[in-house]
Amino acid sequence: MRFAALGNPTYVDINRRLLAAANARTPLVAVHRGQNAGSVVENTAKAVRAAIVSGADIVEIDVIESTDGDFFTFHNGYEEAYFGLDRDILTLSTSELEELQFDLYVSAEAEKYGLERLSLILSSFPETILNIDRSWDYWDRLLPYMDEFECADRVLLKSPVSEEWLGKLASHPVKYPYMPIVKTMQDVELALNWPDINLVAVEIVAASTDCALASPSFVEQLHERNLLVQLNALNLPNRVPLFLGWDDEVSVLDEPEKGWGRLVDHGADIIQTDWPMLLRHFLASRK
Rank of each mutant, 00 (worst) to 15 (best):
V202S: 06
D153Q: 14
F243P: 06
E98C: 03
E42T: 02
S285R: 13
C151M: 10
R286S: 03
S119Y: 00
R280K: 15
E127Y: 12
L222C: 12
N15E: 10
V48Q: 07
A191V: 05
V161T: 13
L97Q: 04
L244C: 06
T128L: 07
P195M: 05
V106Y: 03
Y113R: 12
L199I: 03
V174G: 11
I58N: 01
F71W: 03
R16S: 15
N235E: 10
P9E: 07
A81V: 11
V200E: 00
C211K: 09
L166S: 11
N43V: 09
G84M: 07
A30Q: 15
I197H: 01
E224R: 14
E99S: 13
L6Q: 08
R286M: 06
A81Y: 13
M277F: 15
Y113W: 01
E109Y: 12
P180C: 02
L100W: 03
N76V: 13
A233F: 09
G55Q: 06
L118A: 05
A206V: 03
T44K: 01
G69P: 01
W260P: 03
E150D: 15
D103H: 13
H281F: 09
I64Q: 00
L156A: 11
K175S: 10
I64D: 01
F102M: 05
R117H: 11
Q230H: 12
P195F: 07
V155S: 06
E127C: 08
E257K: 14
L166F: 13
G77T: 03
T184S: 14
V188S: 07
E203H: 12
G245E: 02
L18K: 02
R286Q: 08
S39C: 04
A214V: 03
S285I: 00
L244F: 06
N15P: 09
H266P: 00
V53I: 13
R280E: 10
Y138W: 07
N238K: 06
E220S: 14
R154T: 09
V174A: 10
L157D: 08
E80K: 14
L92E: 02
